[in-house]
Every structure is written in C-alpha cells, then in structure tokens.
Amino acid sequence: MKIIVTIKQVPETGNVKMDPVTGTMKRDGVESIVNPLDLYAVEEAIRLKNEFGGEIIAITMGPPKADRALREVISMGCDSGILLSNKSFAGADTWSTSYVLAQAIKKLGEYDLILCGERATDGDTGQVGPGIATWLDITFTTYVSGVKEVKENSLVIERMVETGYEILEIENPSLLTVIKEINYPRLPSLRGKQKARKLDIPVWGPEEIDVENKNLGLKGSPTRVVRISKPKVSRNGELFVCKNDQDIENAVGKMFEFLESKEII
C-alpha cells in the first residue's frame, strides 16, 4: 500500500497571537507541535504498512521550520516527508491550502490511500481533507473510527456519526479523515529519531508543482478574515463556598431550589 499522510504544524494553543493586518496567525515565538489529531492518521498509516507492506509519505504545507513536524512523524514510522513551503503559499485559506496539497500529491504518482486528521486544533475547520479529495477527484469520507478490512480494491471502514456507527466500503484510492477513537498513536522510537535526523526533506514551492499562481496564498483565497475579537462568556451566577458538611447541605439545598425555580426537576 502506498499511503500519503497530510499533517499540519500547529501552535500549542493557549498562547496565540494574531496579525491585526492580515488577520492570520503570528507563528513566531510560539511553540509548535504536530497537530495532535494528525498523529492518529500517522499511526493508522503505520499499522496498515506494518500489516500489508508499502510506504508512507508525509506531506505538509507551512513555514520552513515545519520540517520539524515531518521529522517527528518520520521518527514514528513514516518513510519520507515533503515540505511545501514558499512565501506565495502564505495566508492561504482551506480552499487554497487543499489546492496546493492536492497538486503536490498529484506529483507523487499512484497511491492507494490518503489519511488526514479530522481537523487541526488551530483552524478547527476540518475542510482541508475533503478539499484535497475533491481537487483530486477521488472519493472520501470523514470521522473514520476504524479500518475493518483491507480488500483488493477497497477498504471497509467504520465511521462515527451522531446516532451511531456506519460500516462503509470505499473504493481505492480514497481519502479518509480519522478521529481519535481509531487508535493510540505510538511514541517516536530511538531508531526512528536517528533516521529522521539524517533524512533529507525536499522543499517544494510553486516551481516544483504544477500550480496556477492566482490560486495561491491569501490572494488566491475566497475567504477573508476581516476582524478578530476576544470571545466573552460570563453569566455571573451565585457561588456557594463549602468548607464543611453543613455548607454542603445548605448549598445543595439552594441548588435544588434553583432547579425547581427553573422547572428542571
């Protein structure tokens, strides 16, 4: 099986700054990690490779230092990595990002499967995976919680939806976005780390892939961030402090009065 895994380098959330002019994220000075949900896609690729053989290519679009994210997933077990990095890619929305990734994947020749995390923890859109599949005109599905069977020309998978689990058969090649129910990602191995350190990671820009310049970066993106604000959530309810059993008895009593007043009980 030839598997392509898309990953994204994201900031550790909690300490994020925005550029007030472009409305995009400032990535300098913030610690970067591999999007935690992408690790499930990487792990599933490794499991499939271990069972059925083949190769895993990890691909990411980001700033030059995003090669660290690729090295991390290579140390887990991916065979190689490709970094899509160029000033002209910067500020891309999900439409433009999925376009560039799809054009790069086209250059990799035939493949059986593309695996993606369900969404990235920074953008939180979950749109790039479906976008890539659509640009490539391959079938796809989302919220995949298990790969049940690998057949000659298809996969049998389990998909989590609001009311239960679907069992689907999907033709190759396909793209799946996976959720964390699917597996437990492994830690990088020592041997993997050594390999990842030495491995050459090619950097591709618009010259290396067949892209139309008008589709790139902020200029090529249909959506525009026009304003950034801080969310406010505050209700100022009553707070009962409990230091002993009597306080608890009292607070719970008041709570039940509250529940009755709101017709909850």
């Binding site: 505050s234 209700r235 009962f240 402090v241 409990c242």
Partner: peptide, 24 residues
C-alpha cells in the same frame, strides 16, 4: 474558586465533589 467554569455558571458550588455529589 478561581476555576473558569464558575464564570459561565448560573449556580456554582465550590468544594470537594467527592463530598457534594453523594449529597445530590
């Protein structure tokens, strides 16, 4: 008592849930 959750609560009880939940 400083927990963020109290900012969005209509009714808050600060204390050990091991003691409070059994009473509820």
């Amino acid at each position: 008592s400083e927990a963020q959750i109290f900012q969005v609560a209509d009714f808050g009880i600060q204390g050990d849930l091991n003691d409070i939940l059994p009473v509820i």
